[in-house]
């Protein structure tokens, strides 16, 4: 019996591991290999760090990271704040229809990004309903898709709309783990809602806030579908739709330069690794406090 149990875990894991190795591990190694190669059609030659050096001279590459950074700064704080706001509201057990609201808020998370981007693209049309709405108040028309500033705002809105629900549920999970007695004793002390929020809720949610920030940052780094669909596969006004993902896709499939594209991919891996490392370190520090 012992012997068979010893073999079982490997047997159980083998289908997953096989696919994991084939579709994740090997590709990632090949991708690293490619990033040091120049690939012109069928000829592959080793070029050392040339691809990476070329990237740092390429203004589009730097612009793509800048764009992604702007997207993160413009969306993550709002996503986290709104998510905490809704989570705190939903955490009230006397609220009716909690399940309904949770489901509704979560819908954007499980909706195709292509669909989300297409609908918002329609909203943002110069003659679309947002401008029609603004027209009612004599405002606008806002050049949602043609002005770099408004174009960024337009993207922020979509990303925030799409992201809030997921983090709301995440925070709700965090809040439900909080001991109710803490709030009760705070109530007895006559603490106001704001005091309770800032002195009890926020500190207790700190690990979840940290996790959410890192997840949202990695998500932001991967932004592709929304700018790609909203700006019809172009770089958008003032190149605002040029995210790292868009750059990678275009470098691979429009410029047919897989060496450089792999170098871009690995720059993403490195940035993600650094972000995760920071989360890990900060998380550790918090625990030891």
């Amino acid at each position: 019996m012992d012997k068979s149990i010893r073999k079982t875990p490997y047997l159980f894991l083998s289908p997953f591991l096989l696919l994991f190795v084939l579709t994740i591990l090997i590709p990632i190694i090949i991708s690293l290999f490619f990033s040091f190669m120049s690939i012109q059609g069928d000829s592959i030659t080793f070029v050392g760090l040339a691809n990476f050096k070329a990237l740092f001279r390429d203004p589009m590459f730097l612009q793509s990271y800048l764009n992604v950074l702007i997207i993160m700064v413009g969306t993550i704080p709002f996503i986290i704040l709104l998510a905490i706001f809704f989570a705190v509201l939903l955490n009230n057990p006397t609220i009716k229809g909690q399940g309904f609201f949770k489901t509704v808020y979560y819908l954007p998370t499980v909706t195709s990004l292509v669909a989300v981007a297409s609908v918002f693209m329609t909203f943002y049309n110069p003659m679309g309903i947002i401008n029609s709405f603004l027209h009612l108040f004599g405002a606008g028309p806002v050049p949602w898709l043609s002005d770099p500033f408004w174009g960024r705002i337009a993207m922020f809105i979509v990303i925030i709309w799409q992201g809030v629900g997921y983090y709301t549920i995440l925070f709700l999970g965090g809040l439900q783990g909080v001991d109710k007695e803490i709030y009760e004793s705070a109530d007895i002390d006559g603490a106001s809602a704001w005091v309770k929020f800032f002195h009890i809720t926020v500190p207790l949610l700190k690990p979840v806030i940290l996790l959410s920030t890192v997840l949202a940052t990695i998500n932001g780094l991967n932004t592709f579908e929304i700018p790609n669909i909203m700006y019809s596969n172009t770089y958008g006004p003032g190149s605002i739709a040029l995210t790292v993902g868009v750059n990678l896709y275009k470098t691979s499939f429009e410029m047919i330069d897989f060496g450089k594209a792999s170098a871009i991919a690995w720059s993403m891996v490195l940035v993600s690794a650094i972000l995760s490392f920071i989360q890990f370190k900060v998380g550790k520090k918090d625990e030891t406090k």
Binding site: N125, P126, L145, S232, P237
Partner: peptide, 8 residues
Amino acid sequence: SYYSSDKD
């Protein structure tokens, strides 16, 4: 007049 996307 001005247009903002290829489709428009």
